[in-house]
């Protein structure tokens, strides 16, 4: 466990636990209500469990999978005590997530030696791209990295200012060509800036866009290509930011953004609200792309590296 403790300082675990409290209490409140007065896990209990999982935003497909696994277990063991249900549920969720071969990341930055390591941040409007960038930059800065933020959202009113303020808070470099400029050019030149100034990491912001607007998705592909033109192999990471309050549409978003830019990692934001931690389970199950970061609050330090097992555990104990 020393490995986990290294990853998860006490403070972070507290953040996570606190953020998850809502989900936990409602998930467990609901489960215990569902099984009150029962001794055996039967059809009725499973139906209730299904409804509990779905209303925690786990999603239909994943919920069905989890229920089927528990059913299979009942068929195998013949008899299942209600008191065992929580432990079994946790077990099954952990196993289910382990089957989807995405490996958990260990740190904010992979130790691969690319310099600059270029991260392109994409997502629909209002999911928290810029805030995530600010928090990520802060974490990297804490590790002693030299970071530049590229203001690629040249469209939304005052987006450049917003990122600039973050760069000042973090104390990192900032590259911008102003509003209404070509975002592909901003991306290209941010990488150039990173090369010239020996930055370790370049994080490029982009304007929020709905995944259904194909011309905007094409623009995104172009931004990505232009980064690759300046530095071969870049961007090393395309980070799709998803809002944890989003429902089933999150899956469509992931699909379309992956088509346009080969998304390589996900950040899940706003996990500190009401019962919605469940969405992380659904996403970890359904996507081949790993969740890498989770946003747990408005504070600059409240971005964490996501670990499936720890996450599920924090839901249960």
């Amino acid at each position: 466990m020393s490995f986990f403790s290294k990853l998860f300082s006490r403070e972070k675990k507290e953040d996570l636990d606190k953020g998850m409290e809502k989900t936990k209490t409602s998930l467990f409140g609901k489960i215990s209500k569902a099984i009150a007065g029962k001794s055996k896990v039967d059809e009725e209990v499973l139906d209730e469990l299904e409804s509990v999982l779905i209303s925690s935003d786990v999603g239909l497909e994943t919920t069905v999978k989890i229920i089927e696994r528990i059913e299979a277990r009942i068929a195998r063991d013949k008899y299942l005590q209600v008191s065992e249900l929580q432990a079994i549920l946790r077990d099954e969720i952990v196993q289910l997530l382990a089957e989807n071969n995405t490996t958990d990341v260990e740190d904010f930055l992979p130790d691969q030696g690319q310099k600059p390591y270029v991260i392109l941040v994409v997502g629909v409007n209002g999911v928290g791209k810029t805030t995530t960038i600010g928090k990520l930059a802060w974490q990297l800065k804490q590790q002693g990295k030299k970071v530049v933020l590229g203001a690629g959202d040249t469209f939304r009113a005052a987006a450049v200012d917003q990122l600039k303020i973050w760069s000042e808070r973090v104390g990192c470099d900032f590259y911008s060509k102003g509003m209404n400029t070509d975002p592909a050019a901003v991306a290209y030149e941010t990488v150039q800036y990173a090369l010239e100034h020996q930055c370790d990491v370049a994080i490029i912001d982009t304007a929020g866009r709905l995944h259904t607007k194909s011309h905007l998705m094409q623009e995104l592909s172009k931004i990505k290509r232009s980064v690759g033109k300046k530095l071969e192999g870049a961007p090393h990471e395309v980070l799709l930011v998803l809002d944890a309050t989003t429902g089933q549409n999150a899956f469509e978003q992931a699909k379309h953004f992956t088509d346009a830019t080969d998304v390589s990692a996900l950040a899940l934001t706003k996990l500190d609200g009401t019962a919605k931690g469940g969405v992380a389970i659904g996403i970890s199950d359904q996507f081949k792309v790993p969740i890498k970061f989770i946003g747990m609050g408005e504070g600059i330090h409240q971005l964490q590296v996501f670990n499936k097992k720890i996450f599920v555990e924090s839901l249960f104990d």
Binding site: I54, S55, S56, D57, V124, N125, G126, L210, H211, T212, K213, D243, T245, T246, G247, Q248, N249, A250, G273, T274, A275, K276, V279
Partner: peptide
């Protein structure tokens, strides 16, 4: 695009500010 949580949020805001109308955004997705 909000998911299952919409109910809780809408209710919590209603309890506090008793709004008299709802605005749905991003319906172009």
């Amino acid at each position: 695009m909000t998911g299952q949580d919409a109910v809780n949020t809408a209710k919590a805001f209603n309890d506090v500010i008793d709004y008299n109308g709802v605005v749905l955004t991003k319906l172009d997705g």
